[in-house]
Design a protein around this nucleic acid. Sequence first.
DNA 1: GTGAAAGCGCTAACAA
DNA 2: TTGTTAGCGCTTTCAC
Lengths: 359, 359
Amino acid sequence: MGIQEIATVTGLSKATVSRALRGLPSVAETTVDHVRRVADELGYVPSSAAAGLATGRQRAVGVVVPVIDRWFYAKAIGGVDVELRRAGYDLVLYNLGGPGGDRDRAFRRSMLRHRVDALVLLSLVLDETERSELELTRHPMIVIGGPAPGLRNVGVDDVAVAATAVGHLLGLGHRRIAYVGGQDEAGMNVAVPYRRRDGFLGAMAAAGLHVPPSWLADGRFSFAGGVAAGAMLLGGSGTGSASVAGSGSASGSAAGCGSASVSGRPTAVFCASDEMALGVLLAARRLGLRVPDDLSVIGIDGHEYGAAVGLTTVAQDPEAQGRVAARAVLAEVDGARPEAVPPAPATLVVRGTTGVPRG
Amino acid sequence: MGIQEIATVTGLSKATVSRALRGLPSVAETTVDHVRRVADELGYVPSSAAAGLATGRQRAVGVVVPVIDRWFYAKAIGGVDVELRRAGYDLVLYNLGGPGGDRDRAFRRSMLRHRVDALVLLSLVLDETERSELELTRHPMIVIGGPAPGLRNVGVDDVAVAATAVGHLLGLGHRRIAYVGGQDEAGMNVAVPYRRRDGFLGAMAAAGLHVPPSWLADGRFSFAGGVAAGAMLLGGSGTGSASVAGSGSASGSAAGCGSASVSGRPTAVFCASDEMALGVLLAARRLGLRVPDDLSVIGIDGHEYGAAVGLTTVAQDPEAQGRVAARAVLAEVDGARPEAVPPAPATLVVRGTTGVPRG
DNA sequence: GTGAAAGCGCTAACAA
DNA sequence: TTGTTAGCGCTTTCAC
């Protein structure tokens, strides 16, 4: 069952068998063939634990996610996985399980057990304790999606992305543009929503446009939240507020308030995620608004559903970001010293939900 | 850095330290306290590799998925994760990466490396080689979502689920019911689509109703596929066929063909997944059909988006299924002998997309 | 090009 | 209650 059997059968030593199996040089070709064949016949399977103990390398990297059932995270994990697999590494998934999942134990108990050689953190906001605890492991680390203090990060330039979206709308002639953002309780990097909102506000200000506070709605980065925010923004007689039954507490920061019709209805809505944009689209339809004639909607992400309904968006590629992150930590594991990663690309994809306003 | 340091510092033996750290009985309370304190001070972190080598237990279970970025899989993984975490096990993710991802290597190279103590397979169809290869590892195994030859499985009774959906439609007075199913190229257990279709056909036959072949459409278990299938089924002048640009080859089995209007338009569509149902809804809207007056739509799953748009569905709980599966393999790892798992619950959730036909 | 021997950090009998 | 002694299966000097 172990390397020893092969040694006995082939009449070689464990050392040579080990070398042959790993394809090291300085092993006769004939020997390699022989060993390989015998190993196959015996159904030999190396023990990663033993190898790990001996080398100190586990050939595995940990991926820490706030939750898994989100478009961005799932895609990014897929990307990380691809590169890991290619390099012969396994992927150990650490799911924090959203706001409720006791992070503490997860962090201490498992992640630090030398089970992995590096860590990829998805959209995580670490507190001081967590950071120092992780740093203590001396593992290469990188964050995907949103800046993290003291750590390398890969992701789009959120401010620029927001500016691109607003630029598209302005180019079409829109002046009355609302924003749907908010905090994502499920765990997205807190900085991201702020940066997108700031990008929006900045671009609007640069164009000399005013945005009434009630046009900054909270869509909680979810589809349902988008529906509610859209109803509030678009219906003078909206559902009342942007919060949805059973949704728990809404983050206060970017929440809209009061009636939305401060100066009539917006002609365009910029949503900080496609999921929210889809929700706004649904709300608009329920109100009988025609898109894009009565209302233009643009999102961020490049979600598949958006493509199917013709949603204009600023697309990013989380899978590619995952691949980049994986390559970066793997390189670091192999001794390369960490270099900053350039911002990930994001591209405007114009489809049917944006057009010139015909209010 | 290791157990040894603690031993030296405390003046105890490695054995006692090990016992204390693991909370075994027969260690003086004082000793335990002392050891724990010193371990903390030293920032001691156990090595799972060493422990694994010594015990033969890795305290990790592998989860094999066809792809991660699917509602069902993501939810199920989350469920597995919860139980694993609770038991102090890590989750190693093996992503087959869909149709393109060379499964072979993944299987051989990684999954069998003694890195995990058990395997949870999501909706997998294994060929003979794979099965025997996996069986060879003697790891406890279980499959989620769809029967697998020779393996325990947890999941809903797909035939019954389909019958429930059809029963709801029949109860409302529908007689002209179409079906959207098809094969899921991304990796869902091939048996599932067949069982749902058979459940549909069986229930229809039992009601003495005929289903023209053209009313069995292929929605490829995706949103876009559902849009296409809906267009074909509902529009005399549909998009032409149920295949979508860039979708690659459609599975032949359940594909609709020719004009759908064999005997007029169906008054209801039963979709084998919520994602497809959402697509059909979109197609219906594009054709100007009112739901549920002109058309009723029901799906299977309990997808969040469905809830937001008011989709009637037969909901299942993949997360719960994941938890059940995890508990089952963990028990087996702990020496319990495998018992068959009862079918997972599925419940009819009536919302706004189904109603009495008013054609 | 190959072998012998010494660990990697922990657990598990068996003693004491 | 605690210590001693062997390993777990592999890698890795250092010889040959």
